[in-house]
Amino acid sequence: MTALLESPYEVMAGKILKTRQWTDLEKYFEVELPGRKDLGHEPGQFVMISVPGVGEAPISVSSSPTRKGSFEFVIRKAGGVTGMLHTMKEGDSVGIRGPFGHGFPTQRLEGYDLLMIGGGCGNIPLHSLITFVLDNRSKFGKVDILVGCKTPETVLFAEELKDWAKRPNVRLDLTVDRGGPGWQGKVGLITKLIPGIPTDPQRTCAVVVGPPIMYKFVIQELLKKEIPDDQILVSMERHMKCGVGKCGHCQIAQYYCCREGPVFTFKEIRHFYEAI
């Protein structure tokens, strides 16, 4: 019998076009598929990146689908695969599988004021959505962006943040947990920035991406502002191994984060233990 089905584990050969070391831990990559084939992702989706002999790791796409031809990642060095990726350079090849999961529901967000809050690594998937929104600026209401990082040295997309802040009807605020020499910006937790933002809760969608501890406190602030729980979107971090809803690693209650997520509404997950 011949196999009639295509393997869901099929890997495409991607080529690294550009790399840049951004921080001690984060490195930027621009990648293209053979024939500059479109990745076809939504903001907030992830792919599995392969380094042959080392393995595969789930990585968020940081660029917006509005930018065609190639796509981008900002990868934190955290384990075997990401460690090896950090040694790679222009012209090297990496395996790409995906995109997987449900990203941010951009159609649903149309017409809403957006309050986008990113903490640390969470700013990477959020970058995809912010770029998408700014590329389609007329479809969305006012845009508030809150960016939180540990230290001034770990601020991601620093140049772009300056550019975003200049865009019409966009307000951007940046804070670091610990300041440093020469830092003139804000110092303190991101939660402190939320109460001061004027919001019309019924017409606001909040998008939160960050470490688990951030969700706990940020979501409390958003609920205090009376933003409905189905208008609060979160992206959950799990260690997906297969990406196709089988291997079990990313499961949160009955959800496979790689299939039904990684983006959920807070309403969907608020009653599940082990989610945040």
Binding site: Y9, P52, G53, V54, G55, E56, K241, C242, K246, C247, G248, H249
Partner: peptide, 10 residues
Amino acid sequence: CYCFDIQDEI
């Protein structure tokens, strides 16, 4: 039970 891991071997 069908959970699995995916590993590379060289």
